[in-house]
Each structure stands twice: as structure tokens, then as C-alpha cells.
Simulated scan of single mutants.
Amino acid sequence: MTRVVFLLVPGVHLLDLSGPAQVFSSAADLGLGVELSYVAEAATVPSAQGLVVHADPALPELSTEDLIIVPGWRAAKLATSGPLTEQALDWLRAHHHRGGTVASVCAGADALGRAGLLDGRRCTTHHDLQDELESRYPNACVVRDVLYTVDDRVVTSAGIASGIDLALHLVTLRHGPSAAARIARTMVVYARRNGDEHQASVLLKHRSHVNETVHRIQDVIETRMTDRLSLAELARLSGCSERTVTRLFSRATGMTPLRYQQALRLERAEHLIGHGATVESAARMVGFEDARMLRRLRAR
């Protein structure tokens, strides 16, 4: 039996906690010998979303097969949030020194840093907190804009939903990719995203504007990403002239509709290549006639 112990901090983000907890709970349902428990320095822990979580105030004795996960908490600044006593930090430190694995989601990386577990190791956190994490722990190697990192039994992930990717990766390491895929299907998520995939996708990065016409054009491009879409067709579908489409789209996103479609294709192709596809097959699957254009975009 492997114990997965969540160390909870006041202001814990519910999805930072519930995402990995769902993964390991599903592993238990599959009979993989997983037992979940929740500990904190008080019997009740207020979450960032208002729900109060109950936890065991006693820190358990663990074996090297057990796993500690520190979910993130609401933090405008790491330096003024996430209270943990030296006893809890000693517990984290001792578990790793004995050969155990420790993991964090989002701001939880700061707890590992306070325990001295980030020094000399690769780590990551939510993109809003990366600068502060780097300044607080100058001996750590903060890897920017990735989903998760693994370095000598210290596993850190970016914000919120990336904790699911981290947990699926840990299931894969211990129980194999088939088990992780079964859990992912149960949860209706990607089978497993690679740790070095970007935190902010093209979809999110260029959707922060408020122009409804451009949003409708983006909807068409995203739905028909593999099609050859002409500017004339986008103009017809949006009810604007070609010149207006180009002007509005460039002002809202910083690129032309064609460049946006290429960026979507490139991101999807990188995902496919990261999961074992060849450059040639990935190019065909995302709508390129051959791999030459994909190679040029990747080089650019």
C-alpha cells in the first residue's frame, strides 16, 4: 500500500488539491494499492474558494514508497503567504532525505523551497509566481512556462489543473502508462501531457481581447484548423470586408488570421511529436500538405 499524503496550507486552492486527489483516488478504485490522507497544522483548513477542509493535525510516519504532495494556496506574494511551522518543513525534508518523493502544485513549490529541497534542482510553479520563486531560492533552477518538472524525487508543477498532469505522470512511473490512461479516460482529460508543454496555449494567449467579431473568426479557425481557409471566406463568415478582418484581427491578437492558424497548427504538431508522432505524420494531421512548412515554423 502506497500512502499519498496531502499537506494542506490555509488558503489552499481546491483544484490544486482535488485534481491530484481525484487521480490517486481513481488509482485506488483500480486496485493499485493507493491510500489517501490529508494532514495540516490544524484540524480545519479554509480554502481559497471558501470551503473548509478537514485534516489530521498529526504528521504521520512514512515509508520511502509514500508520497507527499503540497497543493498550492492563494498567494499574491509567496513571502507573505502559506504559513508552515518548522516541524512541518522538517517532516518534508526528512521524508525526502530518507528516499521518499515530495511534490507540489503551484505555490506549494515555496514549501519545498523553505525545506531546502529546491537548491540545485529544476523546479517550476505558476507563471505569475516564477519570478518570486527564482528570487527567493537563487540556488534553484526555475524552469519557466512548463507544466511540471522532476528532479531527484522532487516534483513540481505549474498552477491549478497542471496538478492533474503531475499526478498522472507519477501514476505512470509507478504503475505504467496503461493505468494512467485508464484514469485519464475516467476523468475525461488528456491521457498525459508532457511536462515541458507550455502553461499558456495559443488559444489562451490570444483570447484576452474583447472584440466579438475577432472571437467569431477565431472560433472558425479553431474549429477548422486543418482546412485551407481564405481571407475571403473568413470575411464572408464574419460579415466584414477582407481589409476589416485583417485590421481587427491584427489589432486584437497581434497577428494575421493566417499566422494565427499556423500557430495553432504548430502547437498541435508539437504536442503530437512530443507523444511519439514523426514530423511528417504530425504535419499531415494538423493540415500541412507536407513537413517542409512545419519544419520552417519550428525553426522560426
Rank of each mutant, 00 (worst) to 15 (best):
R3W: 02
F6Y: 12
L7M: 02
L8S: 08
L14E: 14
L15W: 12
L17Q: 12
L17M: 10
A21W: 10
F24P: 13
S25V: 10
A28E: 14
L30R: 11
L32Y: 12
E35M: 10
V39K: 06
L51A: 13
V52G: 06
H54G: 06
D56Y: 07
E61Y: 00
L62Y: 03
T64D: 05
L67I: 12
I68T: 05
I69L: 07
K77V: 07
L78E: 04
L78V: 04
L78S: 06
L78C: 04
P83S: 11
P83M: 13
P83C: 13
A88P: 07
A94K: 14
A94P: 00
R98Q: 15
G99K: 02
T101F: 01
T101N: 00
V105L: 06
V105D: 05
A107I: 06
G108T: 05
D110W: 03
A111M: 05
R114N: 01
R114G: 00
L117N: 07
D119Y: 00
G120S: 07
R122H: 04
T125G: 04
H126L: 06
L129K: 06
Q130S: 13
Q130C: 10
D131A: 11
E134S: 15
P138Y: 00
P138Q: 05
R144L: 07
D151W: 04
A161Q: 04
G163H: 10
D165Q: 03
H169W: 10
V171K: 01
L173M: 10
H175C: 12
A179D: 12
A179L: 09
A180L: 07
A180Q: 09
M187H: 05
M187D: 05
R192I: 13
N194H: 06
H198R: 15
V202I: 15
K205D: 14
K205Q: 15
S208R: 09
V210T: 11
V214W: 08
H215P: 00
H215C: 03
E222Y: 12
R224E: 15
T226F: 10
R228F: 10
L237R: 11
S238I: 06
G239C: 05
S241N: 07
S241V: 09
R243L: 13
R243E: 13
T244H: 14
R247S: 11
A252T: 07
G254V: 04
G254K: 03
G254I: 03
T256M: 03
R259G: 00
G276V: 08
A277M: 08
A277E: 14
V279C: 01
M285G: 00
M285K: 01
G287N: 02
D290R: 00
A291F: 06
L294C: 08
L297M: 09
R298C: 03
